[in-house]
């Protein structure tokens, strides 16, 4: 089953460049502004949109994304409203892939089968669920694949060659390489090592490989885009978003343009690292 994710990465491979994958928290700083930001992403240069599903206890995330989740929850965001947001975006854009990223508990509580039906209907293309390693594939990964929703797996610096095949086995859409051992938005990766790791993963799979955690600037994005098929930026966008908020956390007129501006810079970075068309 070909998803919007497959189509988008194939198009970009043909153009000879990597995808810019932008991560923002659904409902941050409030559901209406969040929808405006997401709607602005494709024109600003995002190729794939990752949306965080807010959770009270995001164990793999650093302070920026933790705070974004709490802002969204404080504004009344729920998993159902996250799906509503995707549906509203899809009404005006039927090609930009949307990947939801978060933790398993809200999905488990929503009900896995019901969630997959509703997510697919809303226009979700893929899922990244941080606390579901291959050992727990029966929980969501296999049902998602059966429902036609890509389950995007994280590979990390601790995933050695012996373990990599198990990690890649049921992965679909793309592989998300976590560039550091650590939490989101805290450390800058060694881009030489990242390139080597991406090359290693690509020896094991034909899927596109996107790199995230610690990519903050156009220069970073350009460096990663030389070897990877996608560049994921999250905490840096959320930092910019946060800087535009009022004293009590409400959005300002500058919120959407500020995020779009950084996305534009990152997109230019990604596009500067053109590779030979495949």
């Amino acid at each position: 089953m070909t998803t919007r994710i497959d189509t988008r990465f194939a198009e970009l491979a043909h153009k000879g460049r990597a995808a810019l994958v932008t991560f923002l928290m659904a409902g941050d700083p409030d559901p209406a502004t969040s929808l405006d930001i997401v709607k602005a992403m494709p024109a600003a240069g995002a190729d794939v949109i990752e949306l965080g599903m807010p959770f009270t206890d995001p164990m793999a995330d650093g302070p920026a994304i933790q705070a974004a989740g709490l802002r969204a929850l404080g504004a009344g965001m729920t998993l159902k409203k996250t799906l509503d947001l995707v549906r509203a975006f899809r009404a005006g854009d039927d090609t930009t892939p949307i990947v939801l990223m978060g933790y398993f508990n809200p999905i488990y509580v929503y009900g896995v089968d019901r969630f997959l039906v509703d997510a697919k209907a809303a226009g979700v293309d893929g899922l990244i669920v941080v606390d579901l390693p291959p050992e727990e594939d029966a929980e969501l990964c296999l049902p998602a694949l059966a429902a036609g929703v890509d389950f995007v797996r994280l590979a990390t610096p601790t995933t050695d060659d012996k373990r990599l095949p198990a990690v890649l086995k049921n992965t679909a859409g793309f592989v998300y390489y976590v560039s550091i051992t650590g939490i989101t938005g805290t450390a800058t990766p060694d881009f030489g090592r990242v390139a080597a790791a991406v090359a290693r993963i690509k020896r094991h799979t034909r899927l596109p490989v996107a790199v995230g955690f610690g990519v903050r600037t156009a220069e970073h994005a350009a460096a990663v885009a030389q070897g990877a098929d996608g560049v994921v930026v999250g905490s840096a966008l959320i930092d910019v978003l946060k800087a535009t908020l009022g004293a009590d956390g409400q959005a300002s007129a500058g919120t959407v343009p500020a995020v779009a501006r950084l996305v534009g810079e990152l997109a230019a970075g990604v596009r500067s690292a053109r590779r030979a068309a495949e």
Partner: peptide, 18 residues
């Protein structure tokens, strides 16, 4: 797999799994 009935398991990030 670390299950007691349906409870337990290993719901951790890939980085920690090894």
């Amino acid at each position: 797999g670390g299950h007691f009935g349906k409870f337990g398991g290993r719901f951790v990030a890939e980085t920690l799994m090894p």
